[in-house]
Design a protein around this nucleic acid. Sequence first.
RNA 1: GCCGCAUUCGUCUAGUGGUCCAGGACAACUGCCUCUCACGCAGUAGAUCGCCGGUUCGACUCCGGCAUGCGGUACCA
Length: 552
Amino acid sequence: MATPAAGQLHVQRTAPDTLLPAAPDPFQPNIQTSITISHHTHMRRIRVRFAPSPTGPLHIGGVRTALYNYLFARQQGGDMILRIEDTDQTRFVPGAEAYIIEALDWLGIKFDEGVHIGGKYGPYRQSDRKPMYRQYAEQLLRDGWAYYAFDRPEALEAKRKEFEAQKKTFQYDCTTRGMMENSLSLPADEVQRRLDNGDPYVVRFKFPADTNITVHDLIRGDVTMNSNLLDDKVLFKSDGMPTYHLANIVDDHTMEISHVIRGEEWLPSAPLHVMLYRAFGWEDTMPQFAHLPLLLKPDGNGKLSKRDGDRLGFPVFPLDWVNPETGEKSSGYREQGYLPEAVVNMLALLGWNPGNDQELLGMDELIKLFSIEHISKSGAKFNVEKAKWFNHEYLQKRSDEWLADQFLPQLKERGIEASREYVVKVCGMMKERLNFPQELWDQTHYFFVAPTEYDPKAVAKRWKPGMTVHMAKVIEILNTVPFEYDALHKALLEDYIVANGYNMGQIMNSLRLAVVGTTVGPDMLTLVMTIGKEETIARVQRAIDTLKEPIE
RNA sequence: GCCGCAUUCGUCUAGUGGUCCAGGACAACUGCCUCUCACGCAGUAGAUCGCCGGUUCGACUCCGGCAUGCGGUACCA
């Protein structure tokens, strides 16, 4: 491929200026050349990419896009590639790339090629590919698919104002490019002069007029747009970098990407991309497109945004993120106690279904069941309750030992010494009522410390006259009966409460109140057996001393 | 404004012309379990399939219009 060095460019007017279209004639029937690129069905290796921009933490919607790409790649036995789209140097955020990699790794979304692991189609960071884009812009220029535009941002702004004053909207397109400063409107020698002079310029795509462009989307079917409504997008910026539009086509082509699965926000620019494949002569290997529906905020209908997370009490990001400039912190799923399996399962089902009633699906099953056909067309609202439920389900599958290891540091922070064995036992006992490991302390504190106060409501309801006598009896039983579950059960429940016709609920709940401080918790005798004889007696005695005999 | 996409229980969704007086899940509610709170289990309620027309013997499913929502309309991705 010819690759003239920068500055050596020549404006070639291979075709006369028939390429400079006039405004569409309203009296002429709009006969249009239809461009529909059909896909060749020959076997081709499935290669997909996740191509985030490192402008901040990875949004959960982006995570879902990555997941769908991953599921598709794995299922098809293809390749999953991580490419960083950092063509906008002004929006670079330090740490964002590392964050993206860490987040996807946490979720179990693995890559075959990418910035972090390399591969034979590298480099995988667009800023590292900078030298290769220029030649493609030149190819388009040479072939008449693009032109130089010298208009400065201020000139563009002025033009927009001018149009606005007439209640019109300015768009740099086939109807307006004739009035702008570009290689289509300026004489060739003037264009050459400016280029030789080093005047800043951008390269714009020259959309052919009156052309219907049909994009075949795997999720939505054919989407057709007319080129007269599309603007001449900048492909190559004055800073020497390509825009997303150019870079993404060049990269997808050179990386032999077979399917582009991306967010719905790209649908409006898909016709441009299709035209670019045609302009480059790459129709035969153009990837197939699938535009994913958006993730919506739980209230209202807007797109889920960063602010919503902390406002509505759930994370919008996979991992905690601290804005390096403002220090502002956004919380992540991982730090909130979500398990990666739960996040993956929940995200997979937000916009896709397996075609049956199964809801609990691990990564392997998702890979097996995934299909683009079953992706929804409309946006999905994020639901916190369902997210909690998923986490609950997956938490139950984790071992008591694992849970204990999450809990041990929490206990240590509170200055509590407890053996791992004991913590494992408590975790096993209480796991089923948890959604998150963070709830452990609230649910189990009484296994580690005696109550310091008694819930007034529970006292009013359960600590009735005569209760100090019953509690003294409990202590007596504990002191005289072997400290075993069955023996205690017989002595306390059967021989004392039932045999004497006492109210089981009142006595057992008062005992619970004495031991726990309120009326929650697991089976009472199991609790007693767990915290031990001495501790139980001490707590009951303390309740008697503190609460005293109530006065009716 | 213009262009595009979307629209089934509160939410996620099943549904590809008759098998749908629309099925499942989460949430809600009721009950069971039980010494309590949870968990679990069982059940109840919840959708005139956005609206209006059309095609058809028959439409949630096809077509058109409208409404609403969202997305795009940058030398951002």
